[in-house]
Design a protein around this nucleic acid. Structure first.
Lengths: 220, 220
DNA sequence: ATTACTAAATTCCGAGTAA
DNA sequence: TTTACTCGGAATTTAGTAA
């Protein structure tokens, strides 16, 4: 008979209960209550975790003695390290370079919407200049840069005519001093290597930008 | 209609793909291939994640545009922080105090087994004195102490007469200098506030231990 | 009190397929 | 190519219970 896929969430639950290395005495009833599901389901899932070699399980009419096996501990650690890989600052970067590009001016139409403008002021703390700065960036570096910033979520809205989607905004400092934000629509078909920047000032004039000019963004 | 429970693993998968904050273009086929399951199942699970408010999803015959919502990002972060809670050294401690107690001498019988002795030598790097030191410890502190140490797994074995279970061992330094290890059977009904220590030296004599003597264990 | 079996209800999966 | 529907079979859940 083929061993069924064991319940990873129950393994995580047991990892917490055992503090990874300890043995614990539990009953299927208590686990069911705390973890969710019925006593029978917990019983079955425990047996599967045992079959799969993730836990040591001694069941008796007096309850269950449970500890994680080497394999079980490894599995939980692996899961954690994987998550840590992209949450920890290890891979994030603190500045991002972009190349100025003349956009098609589409962004301006969107951010000029009164509802967006009000939310930018309220949530970002500045009233943006009525235009966006298009930057060509390395998508890999963009991802790593965004990981280190705190996103601001700007809800979408409906007008009589059409609907405007939600936007994620990320505070940045342009050339280490000018306030601004990267804005990324949540629904976009946009090429991902082009981002739009808003700022209270007219960046193009302030920094005398020409096509191909390099702009440095830092974490705000 | 009640929204079904969305697949958290798919959410994690998408968290990786989107690097949390980015938008990605994927197809249900590609996800199915990489994540597992059929195209149909992925399609259904994506829609459930959307229903549950975890992802922004725009599907069309040309593919899917996917990004995580604020709620989705929060859910993944919450999961990570929960794990980090007991993996990070924040809660671990570097030393543990125990009170010497005369055991019933049971441990001696076990560790004297030739198979165990050989594995101790091979895996722990020392040939233990033929006896164990029983220590009464605080279970909460023991858990936190063990979190900071590296477990050594000693496999069980069978003799003609009976079977001997696996043992987890943790390197320690007794009073900051003497080599030793905490040994915890994987299957035990043992009261968890009593641990057994093995060491190449006869600890009881070396430290002139009497019932009630305090022993300090440090990370090796 | 337990664990865990059986059986019925429910849910899930995926081949086939329409758009 | 896509997405996503239908539907039959597989898998899962859980109430009832035995031990």
């Amino acid at each position: 008979m083929i061993t069924k896929k064991p319940d990873f969430f129950l393994l995580l639950f047991l990892a917490k209960k055992t503090r990874l290395f300890n043995n614990v005495e539990l009953s299927t009833c208590k686990i069911a209550l705390e973890f969710g599901g019925s006593q029978q389901t917990v019983s079955r899932k425990l047996r599967r975790l045992k079959e799969a070699g993730f836990v040591n399980l001694v069941s008796s009419p007096r309850g269950c003695e449970i500890s994680l096996t080497k394999k079980g501990i490894a599995r939980v650690k692996e899961h954690f390290l994987e998550l840590q890989g992209f949450f920890s600052g290890a891979k994030s970067i603190k500045s991002l370079e972009g190349t100025f590009s003349f956009g098609i001016g589409e962004g301006k139409y969107y951010i000029a919407q009164k509802q967006y403008l009000e939310k930018f002021s309220a949530l970002l703390g500045f009233k943006p200049y009525l235009g966006t700065l298009n930057l060509i960036v390395d998508t890999e570096k963009l991802s790593r840069f965004l990981l280190g910033t705190e996103p601001v979520f700007i809800e979408g809205f409906e007008t009589g005519e059409r609907s405007f989607g939600s936007i994620k905004a990320f505070h940045v400092k342009i050339f280490g001093k000018t306030k601004g934000a990267i804005i990324i629509p949540e629904r976009t078909k946009h090429e991902k290597n082009v981002i739009e920047i808003i700022s209270p000032v007219y960046l193009r004039r302030k920094y005398r930008l020409k096509a191909g000019s390099k702009i440095k963004l830092g974490i705000a």
